[in-house]
Amino acid sequence: MIRADAVSVVKGRSTLLDSASMVLCTGERLAVLGANGAGKSTLLSCLCGENTDYDGQVWLGADSLKELLPEQRAQRIAVMPQQVELVFPFRVWQVVAMGRSPWGDEQQTLEWQQEVMKATEVHHLQHRLYPQLSGGEKQRVQLARVLLQLWHYQYQSNGQQAYILLDECTSALDPAHQHEVMDLVSSMVGPAIGALAVMHDVALAASWADRVMLLRDGRVMAAGEASLLCDAEVLSACYDMSSALSRQYARVNQQWLESR
């Protein structure tokens, strides 16, 4: 599991994350929600080793995350950032193949690369130049790269556990693709893999997550089963929204949960 123990991040005078604790186990889908600036991405950057300037501890299994070698960490944690800018002319297949960098087996996993590109529906784009793609296509290519990092991991994990961390990975996608992508992530979650997704779309979270965590002002405001999203009071406290609006959202979330 990934465990954060009282992680705090202070930048200048502002506290971005205030002693946040959480646990993510394999086989589990955790959605992290919260208003803009609530500390969701900051939390994610501590969990993935990108930010090492925090108080508290992050554990990956029995190891302290800070003490793992970069490539060991990358073999067990795949991260999809909010935004990837690439202006240099790379082909789509080249971008996807970089997902194998932590393993150094780009040449041996050509079949997997084809599989993952089919799964994210970018297979037909593989010879296109990445900078010329649309926003949604770019996001699906990046997702293919990230998933390739842990593709078929369950068959070769040797008892190790791995995690997929997604930071608003559906922001540029149409509704159909949003659900397809989240289903794809679900299909990878299993005994060896767990997934965490930072999300803005509450309904999408209700349709996907097993557990949810709500952040507010850098603190964990509430955490628990996905049914938490059907509680209008929790939603209105988390997002500062009117009670009429939060009731409306709670109702929709209830429908999503029932339809699963």
């Binding site: 970069p70 490539e71 690439l86 970089m98 960098s101």
Partner: peptide, 19 residues
């Protein structure tokens, strides 16, 4: 290979396990 990853930004290069 680090240079390839760096073209997508330092964050991505970190995620891909490069120092």
């Amino acid at each position: 290979r680090v240079l390839n990853a760096l073209l997508m930004g330092e964050q991505v290069a970190i995620h891909l396990g490069f120092d």
